[in-house]
Write a protein that binds this DNA or RNA. Structure first.
Lengths: 203, 203, 203, 203
DNA sequence: CATGAATGAGTCTTCATTCAT
DNA sequence: CATGAATGAAGACTCATTCAT
């Protein structure tokens, strides 16, 4: 059976998970550079050498974490069905997807912090991988704007610019939710933001 | 006009500038942690010790850069005058200020990249200073929303959430402008974004 | 006999020894501050990082050296048995102990020099540890004087002052033995000093 | 007029004093190595370059401090007059000299601490100078013992060993006086120590 | 004479990665 | 497979000394 993912026997899979989880939390706590292999293997409760048995470098784990996240996100973002009369109205579908994606990110606090906090790192490989991640998300958004425009749901906009702006907005919102002492529900946040995005702030 | 800053003789001022500029570029290129004192002094073409003559630590230069940027931004962001009949209409004033601020950031490419790329660093002092910087900008935005609401220019919104969202949006836009191969003019970008922000994307 | 010290497998023990020995010599040669990690690892023929695998800092090795020395000294200094009719007479016991302790210090030339040469260092931790070491020795001496006084072996003296004086005397004597081109035997030195201490220099 | 000391005009003399005093205190506080030129010029309230106008290096000031101290000590230690029937009895003269010397050292607290705390330093020049200082004192003591022996005041001793032992004792006593919370008078200390030295501790 | 800005060798310490067991 | 001891490059920072003004 063809598979993009290298098939590992369950034991190794399990170890890999263990390391990925540990790394995710450490990256979240300390940022990419601040995360030490020491902290990761400590949390994963494995030996130093074992780490390098599963990942060839620090940036490799980082990459894998982003890979997994991207895949999950992609699974959540289907095409919005406009033609099927049985489907929910587009705006409802849109809202559902955004809520879903945001909830995915926000509920995995470690992932969210990792994504927010990992800035440019001196490690070129990691930096590139992160750029790529956000690039993909931005593409997702851009295509969404383009479709919306085509089907006349949205007015004429510059999709690329808007994608960049909205990606930033999402990051800002996620940060708001995560760092807030009494985090609002994702639903309430999406309602407010979506309203603003769709209709603007003008009275 | 009296200055808050300790007055240095022109020579020292000049050196300080030289170091600040070099540091800004290095931070922009490599992020806070990735920036080495070595790289900074290399770029500034000074000796190791000279650096510590002007700044007591790496995080101190970083701080100073943010201080200067914040001060400049604040100078650009006046209160919007609504009552004076001789003043430009509020929306025009708003647009001017945003254009001004954005232009300030974008035209200092190094500063822009520094602000975008500096993520969580293991250096607590630097991290805090950066948080503070964005916190101040967010406050500026929040107060703007609150005023707008009070004078009934804007509809009822959650100022804090919107401030976070718009700060993120601004970061996204700045990144877009900076990284774009053919960067659009700030004016055109502001027009598009402002329109969206005020009236939404709906057709 | 159970050991207070964490038990290490022989390999690590050996390495630790190797580093301690190297450090002792370097400290002896250059004093605490003058001793560089570089010199220590050079002498121990290990890599920089290896040093920090066994000791968490320069002051930690220093501390360990003093710990070991103190423990050895303490093992050499038993209470003097006055009552047991089978034991050697007190003066003989005293002489034996002093000879033993002095021989221990003198024969480990590096240790002796380290103890003599380490003055006030800017490193607070190391300085404190050294003070503590000599403080303990002084206490040993003070208690010895107090006991001697109680059992009427010694005449009325100020134990604290005398302890300080004799500790200094011992340092002086050790220095004499160590730096002398033809070092006298410890026994001969102890005989002379002990005689003076007990009966004075007057004809 | 011949003079060992280079004659300086009063202004320079004064400046020199100022620096020597400052340096003495700083050396006393932090030991030789821990003393920074910065601390010295700060305390002397002079500019960096000025320091090097008066002393060619850090070790040079250190040397000068010891020179001055040695000269003062020598002035205090005359030959003990045994023959002159009008002179005080030898033991009284001895006591006076010791009290005088000790008082000189103890009352100049900074000097005392400097002498006690300056251990082997990595600075070869300074280390040598310090050894020389104590060597001279030891010689003074040795000659005293030799004379005492010649005139049959003292019994047969090993002058060199005893000089080393007594020098150490003196250091111990000075340390005791200086570090004691309620320092005893020098006179009382000398009485006790001298008694012990002359007659021993035996009951 | 006095100044203090500039220098750069040298310090301790960290940490990603390798490899023999 | 797993281990963890060993490595050494690289990092931030200090400080005695020089020298142009």
């Amino acid at each position: 059976m063809a598979s993009q993912v290298v098939v590992l026997d369950p034991q190794k899979r399990e170890r890999r998970r263990q390391i990925l989880d540990a790394a995710k939390h450490v990256f979240a706590d300390s940022g990419y550079h601040g995360a030490s292999i020491h902290a990761i293997i400590d949390r994963a409760d494995i030996a130093r050498g074992t780490f390098y048995l599963y990942f060839e470098s620090k940036s490799a784990v980082f990459s894998s974490i982003l890979d997994e996240a991207m895949e999950s996100l992609r699974r959540l973002m289907h095409r919005i069905d406009v033609d099927d009369p049985n489907a929910a109205p587009p705006q409802v579908q849109l809202r559902q997807q955004i809520v879903g994606a945001l909830e995915f990110v926000v509920q995995d606090r470690a992932l969210a912090m990792l994504l927010l906090s990992a800035g440019h790192t001196p490690d070129a490989e990691a930096a590139e991988r992160l750029d790529q991640f956000f690039g993909e998300v931005r593409d997702l958004l851009r295509r969404a704007f383009e479709s919306g425009q085509e089907i006349k749901l949205l007015r004429k906009v510059q999709p690329e610019l808007l994608a960049a702006a909205f990606l930033g907005m999402i990051r800002g919102v996620v940060e708001h939710i995560i760092t807030h002492p009494q985090p609002p529900t994702v639903e309430s946040v999406v309602d407010e933001i979506l309203f603003v995005a769709l209709r603007g702030v003008l009275a």
